[in-house]
Amino acid sequence: MTTIFQKNYIHYKDKLSLPKPWDTVVIFLLNVLLAIPTFIIAHQNLKETDFKIPIDRILLFIFILIVYQLILHSIKKYLIIGIFCYFIILIYGTLFGTYSFYRVYDDYRSMVYTMGDNPYPQDIIIGKLLPFPNKFKVLKSIDFQNPKVRNFALYATTKHFTDVKRMKGYREYRTIIQCFAVFKEIKTHWNYVNDPLGNNYIASASESLQHFSGDCDDHAVLMAAGIKAVGGVPRLIHTDAHIYPEMLIGTQRDLENIVYLIRNVLFKEESKGKKIHYHIDEHGQIWLNLDYTAYYPGGQFMSETILGQLTLNN
């Protein structure tokens, strides 16, 4: 009985194995297909380093390749089952909107694009920040529920990037793209005008819409209100004699995809050859610079000395 069982086991084992040299080719392909998404997930959950060349990521990818190579080589007699399981998982992910093949490709493309010197982070420590000046006056000025502000924001979203929001792979960033449309519309029309001498005048967002004019705090208020009106999460940063707006992007993976969008789809000419500037808060969330001095989201900071911040998250 044992002999018959062993013969059947060997028979089916041989049936499930691949002939040489195809087993080596398949192992290599499976290794790459498994290593890439694993590396992406690991990369997105590891802290960024200051290395000019991402040697830590290179070594990580090599390590993952070696581990998968050893695993696949040890089960090479069952490669057909492995291939079948891989494609079942891939088909399931594609049909039900989880981690599909396109998502792997999109994440890999964005990750590779941002592993160079394109993004430019500057960490901030919230515990050291000072109270935000004129906080309640500023909050009152951000009247995002005013019909004028809401209608302006809606108009901006129908004028800019309407085709991109429907493109495959970008739908999950629809709100951010709409916020970028608000940024573009304000940037196109904004006219910098100083406050009256000796008077720190803060105009409401609905007031600034009349002439698209004012100083940095007026711009920051209008930008924050417009972003808030279409579902984004803005905040204002107070520096030495300057206030500017930022918007919440999300995680490292989100940043990588947004950087790709900015530089290759939405603001190709404005951001060409330039870096993307952002801050990372104490929770690891990423905030993109939207200052009036920038011609694209993530433009260079006018001032990097942060004194206070005011977040509009409710």
Rank of each mutant, 00 (worst) to 15 (best):
A35Q: 02
I36A: 01
P37G: 05
P37F: 01
P37R: 01
P37K: 01
T38K: 00
T38C: 08
T38P: 02
T38E: 04
T38G: 04
F39W: 07
I41E: 07
I41T: 08
I41K: 02
H43G: 04
H43V: 08
H43L: 11
N45T: 15
N45Y: 15
L46D: 12
K47P: 07
K47A: 14
K47N: 15
T49Y: 03
D50S: 10
K52W: 13
K52N: 12
I53C: 02
I53M: 05
I55L: 09
R57Y: 09
L59R: 06
I62V: 14
F63P: 00
F63E: 05
L65M: 12
L65E: 11
I66M: 06
I66P: 02
V67R: 00
Q69L: 12
Q69D: 14
Q69N: 11
H73K: 08
H73V: 10
S74H: 11
S74A: 13
I75R: 03
I75D: 09
Y78R: 09
L79M: 10
I81C: 07
G82D: 05
G82A: 09
I83P: 00
F84H: 04
F84Q: 06
F84E: 08
F84M: 09
Y86F: 15
Y86P: 04
I89G: 05
L90V: 12
I91V: 14
G93A: 11
L95G: 10
T98E: 10
R103D: 14
V104L: 04
V104S: 03
Y105N: 12
D107C: 07
Y108V: 07
Y108D: 06
Y108F: 13
R109M: 05
R109Q: 07
M111T: 13
V112M: 12
Y113I: 08
T114V: 15
T114N: 07
T114F: 06
M115E: 12
N118K: 13
N118Y: 13
P119L: 08
P119E: 14
Y120H: 11
Y120K: 11
Y120F: 12
Y120G: 09
P121C: 11
P121K: 06
P121F: 08
Q122P: 08
D123I: 10
I124V: 15
I124W: 08
I125Y: 14
I126M: 08
I126W: 04
G127M: 10
K128L: 14
K128F: 15
K128P: 05
L129N: 07
P131H: 03
F132K: 00
F132C: 01
N134I: 03
N134G: 06
F136S: 09
F136R: 03
F136A: 10
V138Q: 01
K140P: 01
S141K: 00
S141H: 00
I142H: 00
D143Y: 02
F144D: 00
F144V: 02
N146D: 09
N146F: 00
P147Y: 05
P147T: 10
P147C: 11
K148P: 09
K148W: 11
K148C: 11
R150K: 10
R150V: 09
N151K: 03
F152D: 07
A153W: 00
A153F: 02
A153L: 08
Y155K: 09
A156F: 06
T157D: 02
T157P: 02
T157N: 02
T157W: 00
T158E: 13
K159Y: 05
F161T: 06
T162A: 09
